[in-house]
């Protein structure tokens, strides 16, 4: 646990309700994030990792569909109790998000430059030359000739380029925390490596913290400082990435690591998770 953390989550509970069912998605979890730290939240679909990320700036549907409880301490305030107006100053500006499918997150009707400019105008009204700021943001994420590419529409860019543009948009407001929800799952392995390198470099350059949400243990090694493993709404294991990867304690963590095909291993069968044993 980092001392004097940037973000501290206590007893977070998220419950979804419909007419005839109550689904506890997150069952009282605790974690913290230090300044300049990268934390990975690893788990399968349905483990509650993505809703945890969305809950950090209360992006979930309002009650009664979804109820939220617990504490989210960020820069001396509990985000659970602040007003909607204050919350809007945190979303995007302090805690920024990038999601899995960049083509679904970008608006196809506007150029990427326009969309990045919109974010800057909203969160940083003091900026006078927005265009220069957009070009700088695109340059930062390694888009070649940003002064030309900022006029591109999303469909004119490849998936990797679109994800870079999304990162540029998220970072254009200088957030303290970047929440990356499966940022490379829709991308090729080679592009995945590039995007992870890029996030790592920018984290150091901009002194921000990262929360990486993923189902794949393969990408956390060398990227995250610490990780937590979620299973059915609970944290089953947490610790430094090195520690957990080299000596996982919980059977679920072991199973999740073991099911990834390993190069050169030539296993007869892949190991799968035996849920009945958990």
């Amino acid at each position: 646990m980092p001392e004097n953390p940037l973000l501290e989550v206590k007893d977070l509970r998220i419950t979804f309700r419909s007419r005839d069912s109550v689904n506890p998605a997150v069952k009282g979890i605790e974690f913290s994030l230090g300044r300049g730290e990268t934390l990975a939240i690893v788990g399968e679909s349905g483990s509650g990792k993505s809703v945890t990320a969305l809950a950090l700036s209360r992006l979930l549907p309002p009650p009664p569909a979804c109820t939220l409880s617990g504490e989210i301490h960020f820069r001396g305030r509990d985000l659970m109790t602040v007003t909607e107006k204050e919350l809007r100053r945190v979303r995007g500006k302090q805690i920024a998000y990038i999601f899995q499918e960049p083509s679904a997150s970008l608006n196809p009707f506007f150029s990427v430059g326009h969309q990045i400019a919109e974010a800057i105008r909203l969160h940083r009204p003091e900026v006078s030359d927005v265009r220069a700021e957009v070009i700088e943001a695109l340059d930062l994420v390694g888009i070649q000739r940003p002064e030309i590419r900022f006029r591109d529409y999303p469909h004119q860019m490849s998936g990797g380029m679109q994800q870079r543009a999304m990162i540029a948009m998220a970072l254009s407001c200088h957030p303290r925390i970047l929440v990356a929800d499966e940022p490379t799952t829709a991308l090729d392995v080679t592009i995945q490596a590039q995007i992870l390198d890029l996030m790592q470099r920018l984290k150091e350059q901009l002194e921000m913290s990262i929360i990486l949400i993923t189902h794949n243990f393969g990408i956390v090694d060398g990227f995250a400082d610490r990780l937590i493993v979620m299973y059915r709404g609970d944290i089953v294991e947490s610790g430094s990435t090195e520690e957990v990867l080299s000596d996982p304690q919980h059977p679920y963590t072991k199973a999740l690591i073991a099911c990834i095909p390993k190069l050169g291993a030539k296993q007869e069968r892949l190991l799968t998770i035996d849920y009945s044993a958990l």
Binding site: V189, A193, I219, G222, I257, A258, L263, A265
Partner: peptide, 11 residues
């Protein structure tokens, strides 16, 4: 480009 993974038996 493929991430290196530690080999763990069991699970």
């Amino acid at each position: 480009a493929i991430p290196r993974m530690p080999t763990i038996s069991g699970g």
